[in-house]
Computed example of a mutant assay.
Amino acid sequence: MKKIIVPVDFSDHSKYALESAAILAKKYNAEIFALHMLEMSETILSQGEADIQSETIFFLKLAENRFNEFLDLDFLKDVKVTPIVKHFKVFSEVNDVAKEHNVDLIVMGSHGSSGLKEIFVGSNTEKVVRHAEIPVLVVKNKPTTLSFDNVVFASDFSEETVTPYLNASKLFETLGSNLHLVYINTPGDNFSSTSEMEKTVANFLQKADGNLDKLSEVQFISDYSVEKGVLNYANVSGADAIAVATHGRTGFTHFLAGSISEDIANHAALPVVTFRIK
């Protein structure tokens, strides 16, 4: 892990993300790209070209000054930090910046959300998670330490999650983590018998790893929902973080289908790392 990007909106939660990134940067000698997206108002955009240019420069300078002040933090000392200011607040652009700089990980702070606000508005973190093609680490709290010794990887072990699993395995191997594979069995239409679960996981591991060496290590957990099962298992197993695959749904499809991974990222107290299903 050599490059980490952190979207910054000057909130406490983006500061938590920066501090988490700093811990990782010091441990792995990585560079941090601190990204602030400046939201230009419709009033500015409707003005003449000359007015837009002068006012844009003014707001960019204002943002850069505030950005530099915000980045003057003790925990960033001895860390290489490259500030980036973009003109528009378009959350898919975080992924574009990450690709441009060949970044390995996005770190975002999130306060989590619930109820109608979560359904209709969502959070900035969710928007980045939906578009990101690289892993996204979501943190909720000020980090005292940031460990990835034991990571729970929750999956339905479908064929489409093979690539996220391989990406997670690669990342956490470089971090020296123990990756614990978990299958959550729920009542209703998604219920599976023991033999059905084992067959699904065996087919998955054969395709992903080319062997069944990890089959005996997979945990089969029953709970009322996937989210509850993942969070409860992570709690009782003493996990340091949770890893999940995400479809990256957007728009009305996301509203109808929802995303279990985003629910977990929203509600988990632990850091959550998402991996995009391609």
Rank of each mutant, 00 (worst) to 15 (best):
A34E: 10
L18A: 07
T43S: 12
E49T: 15
A34Y: 04
A34N: 07
L45T: 03
A50F: 04
G48H: 03
I44M: 13
E49H: 12
A21T: 09
I23Y: 14
E31G: 03
D51H: 05
A50L: 11
G48V: 00
E39K: 15
S41V: 04
A21R: 07
Q53H: 02
K26V: 00
L24T: 10
A50I: 15
A34L: 13
L38R: 15
L18S: 13
K27T: 14
E31A: 04
L18G: 11
D51E: 11
I52K: 08
L24R: 08
N29D: 15
S46Q: 12
L45I: 06
K27W: 05
E19V: 05
T43Y: 13
Q47H: 04
Q53N: 00
T43L: 12
L45W: 06
S20I: 07
I44P: 02
M37E: 00
M37Q: 01
A30I: 10
M37A: 03
A34F: 07
G48F: 01
Q47L: 13
I44R: 05
E31H: 06
A21C: 10
K26Q: 09
L24I: 15
E49N: 12
M40R: 13
E19G: 01
E19D: 02
L18V: 06
M37I: 03
A30H: 03
H36D: 06
L38C: 14
A22I: 10
A34T: 14
Q47M: 15
K26H: 13
A25M: 08
I52D: 03
K27E: 10
A34W: 12
E39F: 06
